[in-house]
Design a binder for these strands. Structure first.
Length: 480
RNA sequence: CGGGGCAUGGCGCAGCUUGGUAGCGUGCUUCAAUGGGGUUGAAGAGGUCGUGGGUUCAAAUCCCGCUGCCCCGACCA
């Protein structure tokens, strides 16, 4: 392959690096309509692993999956004042159907709170009908002005959970529970050290009382909101008339929540772990955890090499490892090594005639790219070794990402230091300002409040911007 | 919507200033060799030069219109 086809260095141009990486690693491509995305099989396999990990947690906490329509009457959106205000500019509207102009325009769902509200109003009569705990795996459409593969596309895939509860406490518990599930998933499955916290009023979901988020730091120091959990209070219950009779035979409005995590998370994985050689996928989510590259010269060698290759594959499969044999005969081994590194496969086994003779293999690890991370090991106990190595890589990725985040997070107490801090990462500050102050900071530095971390320090301090006494710590950063 | 750029085989580009047979790299197909870090060689396939008009004997190239895409800003998971 030609030199000009190599990846741009991540440090040189993070944007360019990201875009070419997504295309070259065969994760996704642009669709025919500007801003749409085709998720290719390899990218989708990664998304499926994310889905499975989350879905398991949703089920374990009593949620069920369901399907809801993608078409929503425009009037539904208008029932909740803040909601329509937030979403009106980015709606895709269907005006014709069956060759005729429609009496009422239909919007393609940008999110499903409204159609869910419509349904729940019918479903809920009694306190005995509550709670309703439903999750949707679907895609939604938002007509964004600027788009980027995975991070912001016109249509994106996600899950959106929608729950209705009898009391404010239950809704608050649910909101927090789902935030914790996202946090645990990000940290322990995706090896992304996120900061869970609450959004400021300016960044709050349109129609929510409180919005919670997990914020991750990307390789360029910018923040990425990677999952959200909203406490909708009684806003949608009142807009859609979701009421129930309580034990005292009195009508009460429900308390609702919604929470979501999207294919944007794939972007988070790429931008957190990727390096100049390509993707680095956390072992627990990697579509292929171990790739075996057989190397042989003549037809004579092929048989013995393939025999060992297949035997090793069976052993790995039996241990529950996702294995792939790269037996393409038109590519050199060196090419394959580079390609699988580009695709982020955590471990690679190379086996050639010399290995067959010595009962060994070459075992490479993706978190140490190139020849450096390669060692020749015995075929005896190989499966155990790979299992251990996958765990080691998983832990190493989290440790590296955590180190990076901490190195680029600064506690600052004055504006000069603040400006420097948000150039390269997060600024952790005492905050006592109003929306105007927050907007001014954004105009001057491009940094916004990413969240007020759940983990607040004891005591109080002085706001770096307004100089007022403050009792809350905020994370500021430039964001995607 | 404001500012900048681009549109030529699948992908990346040159050619345009000064009009005259459609080029390069990579990829693709076949064969042979090679095979432990982006392998060689040979032979092939593949293009209405975004689109509509104009000038001209002749337009990828000059002129006018249109469309699409990319980057920066506003919007946003």
């Amino acid at each position: 392959m030609a030199i000009e086809d190599k990846l741009v260095s991540r440090q040189e141009d993070f944007n360019e690096w990201y875009n070419t990486l997504v295309l070259r690693a065969d994760l996704a491509d642009y669709g025919p309509v500007r801003g749409t995305m085709i998720v290719k099989p390899y990218g989708w396999a990664l998304w499926e692993n994310i889905q499975q990990a989350l879905d398991k947690e949703f089920k374990a906490t009593g949620h069920q999956n369901a399907g809801f329509p993608m078409f929503i009457p425009q009037s539904f959106l208008e029932k909740e004042a803040k909601h329509v205000e937030g979403f009106a500019p980015e709606l895709a509207v269907v005006t014709h159907g069956g060759g005729k102009e429609l009496a009422e325009p239909i919007v393609v769902r940008p999110t499903s709170e409204t159609v869910i509200g419509h349904a729940y109003a019918k479903w809920v009569q009694s306190y005995r009908d509550l709670p309703i705990l439903i999750n949707l795996w679907n895609s939604v459409v938002r007509w964004e002005l600027r788009t980027k593969l995975f991070l912001r596309t016109l249509e994106f895939y996600w899950q959106e959970g929608h729950t209705a509860h009898a009391t404010a406490d239950e809704a608050a518990f649910e909101t927090r529970q789902m935030l914790d599930i996202y946090t645990d998933f990000a940290v322990n499955t995706a090896a992304i050290p996120v900061i869970p916290g609450e959004k400021s009023e300016l960044e709050r979901f349109a129609g929510a009382d409180r919005t919670f988020t997990i914020e991750a730091m990307m390789g360029d120091g910018k923040a990425l909101q990677s999952g959200t959990s909203h406490n909708l209070g009684q806003n949608f219950a009142k807009a859609f008339d979701i009421q129930y009779l309580d034990v005292n035979n009195e009508r009460q409005y429900c308390w609702t929540t919604s929470w979501g995590l999207s294919t944007r998370f794939v972007g988070a994985i790429i931008m957190t772990h990727g390096d100049d050689h390509g993707l680095v996928l956390p072992p627990r989510l990697a579509p292929i955890q171990t790739v075996i590259v057989p190397i042989y010269r003549k037809e004579k060698e092929k048989d013995v090499v393939m025999e060992a290759t297949n035997r090793i594959k069976s052993e790995l499969l039996a241990a529950g490892i996702r294995v792939h044999i790269d037996d393409r005969d038109n590519l050199s081994p060196g090419f394959k090594f580079n390609e699988w590194e580009l695709k982020g496969v955590p471990t690679r086994i190379e086996i050639g005639p010399r290995d067959v003779a010595k009962n060994s293999v070459a075992l490479a690890r993706r978190d140490h790219p190139g020849k450096e991370g390669k060692q020749f090991v015995s075929q005896e106990g190989l499966t155990d070794r790979v299992v251990a190595l996958l765990d080691e890589i998983q832990a190493n990725l989290l440790a590296k990402a955590t180190q990076f985040r901490d190195d680029n997070t600064h506690d600052v107490d004055n504006y000069d230091d603040f400006q420097k801090a948000v150039e390269t990462g997060f600024a952790r500050v005492w905050w006592a300002g109003d929306n105007d102050d927050e907007n001014k900071v954004k105009e001057e530095t491009k940094a916004t409040i990413r969240c007020f971390p759940m983990d607040q320090p004891e005591g109080s301090g002085t706001c770096f911007y307004t100089g007022k006494p403050a009792n809350k710590v905020a994370i500021f950063a430039r964001a995607y």
